[in-house]
């Protein structure tokens, strides 16, 4: 990846932040010296690892990403309770099914995030994606209405992701 239009002193701001936080969490010491070491490592490692990186889609709306994170957290919690009821109830009454969700995105990173989101929100697991990135196959534990489920996934998870990545 040869994208150099960022600030020149931190070529990979996202990786910098990630490595900085992970280093601090791992060592678990918040002295000034340790933070300095974290900053140096987080600056150096992405530069050293630049050769093996695959091209990614840049995050265009970081604030939207934060609100999406909270939406996701709430959804994981609420729908886990729903699934707990389904799991503990009569399994004969469940109607499992495979659903094809048409995708409006093509880039790999947003689709990966969408698939992970679908897997983490209970009731659905993403199974497979078609070779041409047109459809995402999802297995659902209980399908009330196929169309409604697809609409919900598209409206609730795909739309914010599209806004975050602007694609």
């Amino acid at each position: 990846m040869r994208r150099m239009n960022h600030k020149p002193y931190i070529p990979h701001p996202f990786q910098f932040l990630m490595l900085f936080i992970v280093w601090l969490l791992l060592t678990h010491r918040y002295s000034l010296g340790n933070m300095l070491l974290a900053a140096i490592l987080a600056w150096l490692v992405p530069i050293a690892a630049m050769a093996i990186r695959a091209p990614t889609t840049p995050v265009r709306r970081p604030l939207k990403a934060i609100s999406f994170f909270w939406l996701l957290l709430g959804d994981i919690f609420v729908s886990n309770i729903v699934v707990a009821k389904q799991v503990l109830g009569a399994t004969e009454r469940l109607r499992p099914g495979f659903i094809a969700v048409p995708l409006d995105m093509q880039a790999a990173l947003p689709i990966t995030l969408l698939a992970s989101t679908i897997s983490l929100t209970p009731g659905t697991v993403s199974i497979e994606i078609t070779e041409d990135h047109q459809f995402l196959y999802v297995h659902a534990l209980h399908v009330e209405s196929e169309k409604e489920m697809v609409d919900r996934i598209k409206r609730r998870y795909e739309k914010p992701l599209k806004e975050i990545f602007q694609c």
């Binding site: 886990n80 799991v87 399994t91 499992p96 697991v125 534990l141």
Partner: peptide, 14 residues
């Protein structure tokens, strides 16, 4: 849960 695809739901989320 009766089949493998349904069993996948328990461990990955709950």
């Amino acid at each position: 849960l009766p089949d493998f695809y349904m069993r996948l739901h328990g461990p990955t989320k709950a």
